[in-house]
């Protein structure tokens, strides 16, 4: 019963939106906005006859690679910088500068440096998606509780053990907030990276459809992107709930007081 109810909540708004769309397009046909029925008709042939393998999966592969790399690099560099006061002071202005650069402007540069290939696209994703993870990790490490630090020190927990048992867990809530942003930035950059000098991928395909006035197909591509975003968000929520079970419990207790 409970799951039924929550499933109801989950689909209520989407159903309403589709209904609205259906009503809105049921009048005189608009070339740029297809009806739901048109979209459903085009969806299968557009995606399930080859494009999944040639465009969607490669895109997802690059997205996953880019996002994972951004997370791992962001955390590792963030730990190094966050734990070292000098390094922190030294890198802060530089990081602010790079973060302020809109990642798409790096695409021409990366194209020249790396060439037009998968690595370039992954590099674009990493170059934009790493910042929230990196900066949040630094912040998480910096704002560590001094009493926890003294506890570790007095029990001789130092070096790698301290990072593993104290620093990383205590920074996880902030890091996870960075990871959430990293995922959405990653998705955006996946699309953009494929719009430049590319011959395959979701972003490329959508632009192709648009240029050839295949409007329902273009819309179906947008739907695929949205679905990827939703799936990523679910995976993230699932992982976050596991990793931060203690944190949500703690907050609940604190708020109850």
């Amino acid at each position: 019963m409970k799951t039924l109810k929550s499933a109801g909540y989950l689909i209520l708004l989407p159903v309403l939106l589709v209904a609205l769309w259906w009503v809105g397009t049921s009048g005189e046909p608009n070339f740029f906005v297809p009806t739901p029925a048109q979209l459903v008709d085009t969806f299968g042939p557009t995606w399930f006859e080859g494009r999944i393998a040639t465009d969607v999966l490669p895109s997802i592969g690059r997205l996953v690679a880019g996002v994972l790399l951004a997370i791992v690099l962001g955390i590792v560099v963030g730990l190094l910088v966050g734990l070292n006061r000098t390094l922190r002071a030294l890198t802060e202005p530089v990081f602010e500068f790079f973060r302020a650069l809109p990642p798409p402007v790096l695409i021409p540069v990366l194209m020249l440096l790396i060439g037009v290939n998968d690595s370039m696209k992954v590099a674009v994703i990493v170059s934009g998606a790493i910042w929230p993870v990196l900066l949040n990790t630094i912040e998480g490490v910096r704002s560590i509780d001094p009493v926890q630090n003294e506890t570790s020190r007095s029990y001789g927990i130092s070096g790698f053990a301290r990072i593993r048992y104290q620093v990383l867990p205590s920074a996880t809530p902030i890091i996870m907030a960075g990871v959430r942003q990293c995922l959405s930035i990653g998705l955006i950059l996946m699309v953009i990276s494929e719009m430049f000098a590319s011959s395959s991928g979701l972003g490329f395909t959508i632009v192709q459809f648009q240029r050839s006035f295949a409007i329902p197909e273009m819309w179906s591509g947008i739907i695929v992107l949205g679905l990827i975003g939703v799936v990523m968000s679910f995976i993230f929520q699932w992982a976050e709930a596991r990793v931060l079970r203690w944190y949500h419990g703690l907050k609940e207790v604190e708020n109850a007081v």
């Binding site: 509780d145 009493v147 926890q148 020190r153 007095s154 001789g156 205590s170």
Partner: peptide
């Protein structure tokens, strides 16, 4: 530095336990 044979119970005991 902190000697091996010593343990401390801190005034802020709540914060000295690791909540995770």
């Amino acid at each position: 530095g902190p000697p091996k044979k010593m343990a401390v119970v801190f005034q802020e005991y709540g914060r000295s336990l690791f909540p995770w």
